[in-house]
Design a protein around this nucleic acid. Structure first.
Lengths: 208, 208, 208, 208
DNA sequence: AATGAATGAGCATTCATTCAT
DNA sequence: TATGAATGAATGCTCATTCAT
């Protein structure tokens, strides 16, 4: 979750162009992958969508596969960098989990194509999922887990719940909201779902 | 969740052979897809694994794609048919949800290859996911939702929670348990996770 | 020079067909390579020339490169097997060298396309030449060298000449005859050149 | 052997620079072609080796192909111009052939990369070989042939040998020495082989 | 039903060449 | 002159599917 963004934002003009074209390809690929699926998308489709020649793609990416990974890496890097900043300002574990859930759904809810790629296309690769599982994802889950542990120490959260499991459950619930939203034919705002998820996550379904 | 199994189970002897070979292909495909991924698996790999000639596959399935779908359809059909039987014996909404969670994790925990295909490979197809979303999945979610509604009517579950959302959350949490189990390098039994998920689902994380 | 021919000649019908198609591809490739050069020949050209589909080529050969090597291997194997048989009947070193020269020019003179591929196309690959240099070619040269050594022991050939060098010179002279014949626009029979080469090789140019 | 060098040698200073860069490219290309082969060498490799930009290559050569030809043309021109000078001082046909053989092996023995390109890479192109066969090569062979004819008239060389054939044989023998040297893993001086070749060429292998 | 040889459409990638700067 | 980013034509190889046996 911590890999840094490769693109330089305040570099010299030359760099800016490079970055621009790279990002254009990434944006085009996200759109194309989202609409046809990774394996059904041709590199030529991406190039056409980006308004460049086929070969130009390979000046910025080593392979079609690298494009897919870069889409995720870049999104993750942005998400993490923003997220860390926002979370640093919060101490209360409950408020922290709330912010995490909100950021999660806001980020993906703001870019449906990106959400599709992340929810649907990336899953098609066991290998990628396993790598991801080790690297970025583990880190994300760990942030949630740590927050839960903190909450338990503070006496806010129940002690008889395993933080790792609770973290997975929260993540799974959020992930499901995104997947549902992505696959749904109806168009509705995703972020408000955070509130629903948290209500249940915090209080459970049973009447007290 | 309700699509009927295409294979005939009590047909004449001739049909039985057909079913056997069909199932052999399905089993082989599940294994192959699980280990290499759908797009990286060749029909020839499946045929080899099933111990038949390449062309024979097409006597039982119209296309490679149909095999993938059939794997899911068959698993789903079995799951549903078993599930319905078991759930019919239970009245208490809480016990019913418990049984659903247990069945979900038992079914997938009993066949890792099947779990991989369902959790990882099927996701690679937006189109399939959307179809699934309309058909089987909607039905599965609906059973959960109905049970929650029943629980609310019975005064067991909180009224301020939307049943549809709660159903998704429970499904998402279970789904995440499976995905984690599938991708994990460590080997551990999946079914016990049902208890953990339900504890949190029912009671929430907050100290009362 | 001793690699055995892979094709089975008296095998079962099935085998015969396989061999036939394999040989058809080899023949087609020889023709195509000879007329356009290896790197300018498309696999599709070979397939078209052989009257088969592009993909069929890959049922018999792993790659375009393997086709080139197989052309040479097969020709070499045939040449050696025939050659050994004929040479076994001869004892006189002078007669033996004569037979070698004749076989060399007869073999290549009988198939211009094959000669072009062997003389021109195979040379384009330093790597292949080096492998060849180690394997087949070394064996061929060695047969010549041994014959010269035998002639020296028999007092027929001069003692002050290094057999290895003489062998290379004879080979080089024959090779040049073939290359010239291949590149020449005029059409003339190649085998008679053996006599000319040997006359000079045996007696030198100086007046005695 | 007589094609004139395209580069201008005594032009104005500006031209000198042009020539320098042109030669740098030629030298770089010789090295690159020798180590990877013509078809496996990229124009970008040559530019990198020469320390210039890719596009700059095209300010001095129309195409990659022209570079290969120019390497040969330039080497040939130098060889011929030097050779003619040296041969003009000699009258004796035997001494003349000796000088030719020495020059041939000295020239190529002095620049292994150049030798590789001339012996291995140039052969990969039937078309080039044919052009060469008509132009430069024919001239080279003709010098040898003429010298042999002179020797016959002078009563030094046997009359029953065809000068054209003898010329080819001598060339072929020398060529083989070079090819062997180029492909050999052992490092040894090439020029001394001239003596061996000539000994046999002049005297033959038979005991008189 | 079963086979497996044959098919041929499809596609990622390379690289010689161009051209705006 | 020099650059090097951009181009886009070109092609070896794969593999789902067919069909004669």
């Amino acid at each position: 979750m911590m890999r840094m963004l490769k693109a330089v934002r305040n570099g010299p003009p030359t760099r800016a162009v490079v970055t621009d074209k790279r990002e254009a390809i990434l944006r085009a690929a996200t759109k194309v992958f989202a609409s046809k699926g990774y394996f059904n998308s041709k590199v030529a489709d991406i190039a056409a969508e980006a308004g460049i020649a086929d070969g130009t793609v390979y000046l910025y990416f080593k392979s079609k596969d690298e494009i897919l990974h870069s889409i995720f890496d870049q999104a993750m890097a942005e998400f993490i960098s923003e997220g860390k900043k926002e979370l640093a300002l919060i101490n209360d574990p409950k408020a922290k989990l709330t912010k995490i859930a909100e950021l999660h759904l806001e980020k993906l809810g703001a870019d449906r194509d990106l959400a599709i790629v992340c929810q649907v296309e990336l899953r098609g690769s066991t290998k990628f999922m396993q790598d991801f599982s080790e690297a970025g994802f583990a880190e994300y889950l760990d942030i949630i887990r740590q927050t839960i542990t903190d909450g338990q120490k503070a006496g806010i959260f129940r002690d008889d719940i395993k933080p790792v499991v609770a973290a997975k459950i929260l993540y799974g619930a959020l992930d499901e909201m995104v997947t549902n939203w992505v696959l749904s034919k109806k168009s509705y705002p995703l972020p408000p779902m955070a509130c629903e998820v948290l209500k249940l996550f915090f209080g459970g379904v049973l009447v007290k």
